[in-house]
Design a binder for these strands. Structure first.
Lengths: 223, 223
DNA sequence: CGCTGAATTGACGGACATCAAGATGTGTGG
DNA sequence: CCACACATCTTGATGTCCGTCAATTCAGCG
């Protein structure tokens, strides 16, 4: 199974509808179908109709926008428990792709919104979710006035805050993803990582496994 | 009257509660009090409790965040008709200031939210407002991968799209505000304006009055 | 093992920041 | 109405951080 994992095209395999109950943050607790997406598989594309809401069960997802000449801006990363696909009125303004082999719970958008009109609790949860999304993007907009070092330090702290990992984290995303998220190049990201290693703030077991050595130093850099 | 206009401190003068009815975009149509804010007067501050929602009636408002060392990121500009102050869960994550002499309709947040729980229409309007807000910030995050010229061109088109002005617009904000919105310096903004003038895309009647000469050229630059 | 993509490292250049000086505009008081 | 002060904006000279181009190393995998 999962033979299409390495294929960047849109491989989607729906499975049985399930009722999600005990799940990290379980924000919606609604009926839905889990789907499996291979690495780099497209979950939805820019300008597609927004029919569904999504919740990451395992793996990781990126949303991004492209300019005509190939420049890419990664808008957000979503990790297990996170809900995405809400940024749309009718049509998605971003594309979404699985970063790694991922399971995603897919919910019919209209029916969730419909239920929210009668269930106050669900309504409030959706409201909190979108508020948090907005806050995250606003927070991210601060990278504009930050140096490369500040951006990378902030990124690591952001990821550490969202990962369970204690003392160390395993990044799901490539240097390219990070660069496109932070508005840098992969070379600058890489150089900045080695700077942080040399200054003793972190160490790298592998290129994607970050060991935190001095969080205070990172926070000082985060500005 | 309005003698405190030039005073940067928080000058606030509440007036009679009014029922806003015929108003551009009139998104909420709820009871509220109009307040008047002088240039640079603070409307709310970072970390203050979010008690109110705000709608610009006249003038203009900026929201922004500061770093410790004085760097400032302008998060958004709000023009007549726009609603702001929704980005908050309980506490504001930005500060808001009047850019120019402004009238602002102030609504009790809890009561608006409370009514939204029973009035579907209001609820849907609030949802659309916050979605649009999210989309605007996401759109803005593209500046990260844009050149100075692209940022300024995009900014002018954004403002033109929101202003009624036909063929020309009167910017409410200073070069500093624009610079802090786009992640540039005032010098670079200024230089870029002159570039756009020289290339025939715009002309400047005054430094803040932009005459559009060639929108297609601007759109090409916007990337 | 060799192939392939990802990550790192180095040398160099360019776009924008910084520093500094003028120009323009605006409000105030005589 | 003019003159002065002060803020805003523009323009120029120089510096620097990060992007670009290129080579090397490293990790995964048939």
């Amino acid at each position: 199974m999962l033979t299409a994992a390495a294929n960047p095209s849109n491989y989607i395999r729906p499975s049985e509808p399930v009722r999600i109950t005990a799940f990290p943050k379980d924000p919606l607790g609604v009926m839905g179908a889990t789907m499996r997406f291979g690495r780099n598989a497209e979950i939805f594309g820019e300008d597609e109709e927004a029919e569904y809401l999504y919740q990451v069960i395992s793996g990781a997802v990126r949303t991004y926008r492209m300019l005509d000449d190939g420049r890419r801006q990664v808008v957000a990363f979503y990790l297990p428990g996170d809900v995405f696909g809400m940024e749309a009125a009718n049509v998605h303004r971003c594309s979404a792709e699985a970063i790694a082999e991922s399971q995603v719970l897919v919910l019919n958008r209209a029916s969730v919104m419909g239920r929210a009109e009668r269930e106050m609790d669900l309504s409030r949860q959706l409201w909190m979710l979108i508020i948090r999304e907005l806050q995250r993007v606003q927070q991210h907009s601060l990278v504009l006035i930050k140096s490369a070092e500040e951006r990378v330090a902030g990124f690591l702290l952001e990821m550490a805050g969202r990962y369970p990992g204690n003392g160390a984290i395993e990044l799901q995303m490539s240097r390219r993803d990070i660069a496109d998220y932070l508005g840098l190049t992969i070379e600058t990201v890489s150089r900045t990582f080695t700077l942080l290693v040399q200054s003793g703030a972190i160490s790298l077991e592998t290129s994607r496994r970050i060991q935190f050595r001095n969080r205070a130093a990172l926070r000082r850099l985060d500005a």
